[in-house]
């Protein structure tokens, strides 16, 4: 067992973890932040994407022990004062989802894209989201949502 201290969605948390605890299970089971989804659990589908120190990562392939002291943002940490984050609002407006399972990861990944590139082209959006798999939408509305969010932020 190890003690780790992280800042999760702006709040400091100190918890006991096992050395092999993964970030995806940590946020879901120990912090009850179940917005982060576990899809394939093999780092391919991207449903579990969160931000660690501002960069998007796949939380199912990350040891909590490895990121002691870091800042973590999950999908629950995006909205501020009850207002949806512009990326969440754009996904809602453009219906960038159907079943919604991939959506938290899609949104976290897309937010990171705009941190790297302010006005991405369709191709750049599709390329960046290669690690996020959606089996419902065919991606059209997701790309439209990311473009709208880029315009609004």
């Amino acid at each position: 067992m190890k003690e780790v201290t992280l800042e999760v969605n702006g709040k400091k948390v100190t918890k006991q973890i096992q050395d092999h605890t993964l970030l995806s299970t940590f946020v879901r089971d120990q912090l009850n932040l179940t917005g982060t989804h576990i899809g394939c659990d093999t780092s391919q589908c991207g449903a579990c994407v969160v931000h660690v120190d501002g960069k998007s990562v796949k939380s199912c392939t990350l040891l909590v022990a490895d990121i002691d002291g870091s800042k973590v943002t999950t999908i629950e940490g995006l909205s501020q004062n009850g207002e949806l984050h512009p990326m969440q609002a754009a996904f809602k407006k453009h219906h960038g989802l159907q079943c919604g399972y991939c959506t938290p990861g899609m949104i976290m990944s897309s937010v990171d894209l705009l941190q790297n590139k302010k006005n991405p082209s369709d191709e750049e959006i599709r390329e960046w989201l290669e690690g996020n798999i959606c089996r419902c939408t065919g991606y059209q509305n997701i790309v439209a949502a990311v473009k709208e969010a880029a315009k609004n932020s």
Partner: peptide, 9 residues
């Protein structure tokens, strides 16, 4: 290499 998240780690 891989995808954006893989390249970040």
């Amino acid at each position: 290499i891989g995808d954006a998240q893989v390249r970040n780690r």
